[in-house]
Write a protein that binds this DNA or RNA. Structure first.
Lengths: 191, 191
DNA sequence: ACGGTAACTTACCCTCGGGTCACTTTACGC
DNA sequence: GCGTAAAGTGACCCGAGGGTAAGTTACCGT
């Protein structure tokens, strides 16, 4: 099998395994086993556990930030944005649901390339969340900047929860998930 | 120092360390170091890493389920319950903010006493969340049971996010945190 | 046919952390 | 004072997992 194809397989397997048990809990030999090869090949292609994780992280992070950026750039009513962003995330990761977790994995080493890269992606997403939260709050006449920070962080936690719930229900596709969120938000908040 | 007192110190230190880096990431020697003793004493008192974790988990879980149960039993308007429960949680864990994370640590072994005990606490909390979500949804005329499950899970994720945010802001006390949540919920949802 | 390169493996090393043993020190009742 | 029990420690074992060296197979261009 050509290197390029094997690498893609390994990144997919790595993303699932890292997403499932976190960086610290994942085992390189297990990731290799999932695609039917052995550990040294994995090391030959990615150099280290960090190298593999970075490859997985960049693929996930780039797709995610791009999808969210496009949605945010399109604009719209502040209380419509959360659903639009959710829809973009669900659509992007319908067949790759563990990817989101890589950006929020708190078992990665506290320093080094991974920490820096993950922090970078998180900052970019947090910036979007902050913009959305600010628009939402000002549209309601609220402006405490600390409240807005808190909302932005809770928002990412909500996405986290929804994706965890979704992972446990593989039969629910992106459209159904989006419809469910729309129904709930309309019912609970009148959005 | 008498055993009882030392054990209490170790449980506190263990809770902080397990909460900070998770079961898998925590080191027994580090926990011992935090209270100024060495590893063998820790093992003499708690038997194993699992034993220490269980001691920490039970303390956190018992206090949490008790606090939430009391609040839920008091009853009230469905859309007032979330804030009341949050207030109970913040008050209970004002000086022990990492405790909540023990119940939601997904780096614990998948089987064994810890998994069983943590699952038990989570199920009890999820049951409360499910009751609250059901009351909230029916008061809005919505009744899809799968939606209600999703809401219950998102709710626990929201609590998670709020506590993580709170951990990073040690100057904010329980009352201020409750007031902030009240302000935000009123502003965003009209609750 | 054959040299070379890329894909891939077996067998190994080394560190880290859970867990244990044998031992020393401290506190307290008599 | 002194014996005993509890508090506490230094030094060790061992398994798991990251990482590597050296070798083997398979394919491809000339």
């Amino acid at each position: 099998m050509p290197r390029e194809e094997r690498e893609a397989q390994l990144v997919v397997a790595g993303t699932e395994e890292f997403g499932r048990v976190g960086y610290a809990g994942a085992s390189m030999v297990e990731i290799a086993r999932r695609v039917g090869v052995t550990k040294p090949l994995l090391y030959q292609y990615f150099g280290s556990k960090d190298g593999l994780y970075l490859a997985c992280l960049h693929r996930a992070g780039d797709r995610l930030t791009e999808g969210v950026a496009t949605t945010m750039a399109a604009g719209g009513e502040p209380d419509q944005m959360p659903l639009k962003v959710l829809s973009a995330i669900f659509t992007t990761f319908d067949h790759d649901r563990y990817a989101w977790r890589l950006l929020r994995d708190d078992t990665v080493p506290a320093t080094g390339d991974i920490a820096a890269s993950a922090a970078d992606y998180r900052h970019r997403l947090d910036a979007f969340a902050l913009v959305g939260a600010t628009q939402l709050m000002t549209s309601r006449g609220l402006a405490d900047p600390v409240d807005i920070e808190a909302i932005a962080q809770v928002w990412t936690g909500v996405v986290d929860s929804l994706i965890s719930w979704w992972i446990d229900r593989p039969d629910e596709d992106a459209a159904a998930m989006t419809a469910r969120c729309a129904r709930i938000m309309a019912g609970l908040f009148g959005w």
